[in-house]
Amino acid sequence: MRGGPTQWREEMQDFLYILWIIAKGFIVASVILLCGRGLAVESKWLFGDGKEDWSVEVIKVLSDLFAILAFISLAVRDLRKYLKFGS
């Protein structure tokens, strides 16, 4: 029989597991974004006062891109596993 408390519990557990996958992705993305910002600040110091702003921007954009990629790669891995075996 579908429905009922058991199913509700299972659904909730599934939902929490998805949240956990997303949270992990956010952790990875945040670390990379922080690194990116850090490098951008460092490069600004290296290249001089605002003269080479474009390269700082490039590093920022790339760090965003890397963060998204890391998020996706981790999430895809976890979701594949989840869809096969559950949480």
Binding site: I27, V28, I32, G36, F66, S73
Partner: peptide, 12 residues
């Protein structure tokens, strides 16, 4: 999680 942090940061 850690591996991805390291690899992507290294790439950056």
């Amino acid at each position: 999680v850690a591996i991805r942090c390291v690899i992507f940061s290294a790439g950056l």
